[in-house]
Amino acid sequence: MKKLESDILGILQEDCRYSPAKIAVMLDKTEKEVADAIASMQARGVIVKYTAIVNDERLSDDIVQALIEVKVSPQKTSGFDAIAEEVYRFEEVKSCYLMRGGYDLAVFIEGKNLREVARFVAERLSTLDEVQSTATHFILKKYKIEGTITDTEDDNRIRISVHA
């Protein structure tokens, strides 16, 4: 990837609210160069969406999140993609990755409570023909999300000083 694009992504991934004008100043580029690069990345699907990182532990509503390891039998013509689509189309599925290793699909799901997650696995996932087995792991705590440590570290520095 071009340096400009990776620099812009670095800034947007830190805070996607920065305007092209501000990013241009930071990177010593013109506003147009930055805006064009962002538009191009959007068009190419490099930038999928602008969103907020939520630490749901701090939310008052209880939710249950789980990682489900899914083993599937790939289909002759479409490989893993078709069965993956059957899985990720479900509303409850928040993320879905094809893996190499002990299992095939890593499926992150979210539900209001344990029962809801259990029902999803038992009634929706396990009943798919291609699904051979599942293993459900409940997420207890998120220490770091998308490169950001959830417990913000305090700034312990001396607030103002000339002796440094």
Partner: peptide, 14 residues
């Protein structure tokens, strides 16, 4: 400055 906790400091030297 040290006591004004809600102040933003651009005075830090590290």
């Amino acid at each position: 400055v040290s006591e004004m906790k809600d102040a933003i400091s651009l005075g830090v030297g590290e």
